[in-house]
Design a protein around this nucleic acid. Structure first.
Lengths: 161, 161
DNA sequence: AATCAATTTGAATAAATATTCATCATGGAT
DNA sequence: ATCCATGATGAATATTTATTCAAATTGATT
């Protein structure tokens, strides 16, 4: 049951970090991480996550989030740590059913946009100023679940439960 | 040869105005407009137009442009003429390889965004101010082709060749 | 007009993806 | 703890979509 959430998170991370062009390919990536499941399950997961098979500039197909700009394989490669660490100075706190994410000045819009596409299963919407993002989680989403999914975007996120 | 361009335009118009959930369905719509072609052709067209099969909120699939917000069937119905005529006061002129579209005040961003998603085969990019949009057509795109595709978005567009 | 290269197309087929149906797990409510 | 309802899953299959390959069309060039 929790296997599903783990899978969903892993799927989103894989889509973000690799150029995946079929479900079979995605399945292989996830199996290397130790996850096991049938193709049918993956098809359903992809549907729930609103992931899309997009015809990219190279004349191939690539799985991606709806509305994400696609860069071709070279730019879409296994995460460049340096690039990520720029964004990583973010901290998260909760108040009742809301969460507030503080970012470095000027980063709020960009990060909020990433959250919108990557975490829409957990986050209903975001409002960003310059260095502050208000996150509105969907009903029934735990703080833990919010943190888990944000860590796909911001690996060393610091937070207060 | 020109059949292809006609088809591409018709496809984009159909996707914009109907909730299409399979290529077969799309094929039927286009056949009612008198177009004839094989499913293979449609598959290729969809790839070239970078159209995507998106899992929508209703738990069904819908063909759409990458990055377009999707409203479910009721809102996505055969074009409401009134809604369109609001936007229709736009005029287009050319200068060398550039085009400038004037809109009613405040509409430029919105219309430019529609153009970005709907006309990306012909238009490389747009820059919008408040009531003016600069259109940068791709190489080899004729003024006629620009007009044809913009008329999908702005039915009674006025223009000077 | 004739030739050639490049593009477009359809029919058939391969490949990929979604769904069905049966089974199993999970989380209440009693 | 047992029952029930709901959700998750896999195997098999149906459906959908992409590609292959051969033929047809088009445009450019002579």
């Amino acid at each position: 049951m929790d296997a599903k959430r783990e899978r969903h998170i892993a799927i989103r991370r894989a889509i973000k970090n690799h150029s995946v062009s079929s479900q079979e390919e995605l399945k292989n990536i996830l199996e290397k991480e130790g996850l096991e499941f049938a193709q049918a399950t993956l098809s359903r997961d992809i549907k729930e996550l609103k992931i899309v098979k997009y015809p990219d500039v190279n004349g191939t197909y690539i799985y991606t989030f709806h509305g994400e700009n696609n860069y071709s394989s070279e730019l879409n490669n296994p995460v460049d740590e340096k690039e990520l660490s720029v964004r990583a100075t973010s901290s998260l706190e909760f108040s009742n059913n809301l969460a507030v994410l503080k970012t470095r000045p000027g980063y709020a819009m960009g990060i909020a946009s990433d959250i919108d596409s990557l975490a829409s299963e957990e986050i209903l919407g975001t409002i960003a100023g310059d260095d502050t993002i208000l996150l509105i989680p969907r009903e029934g989403i735990s703080r833990k679940a919010v943190i888990d999914v944000l860590q796909v975007i911001i690996p060393n996120l610091s937070y207060k439960l």
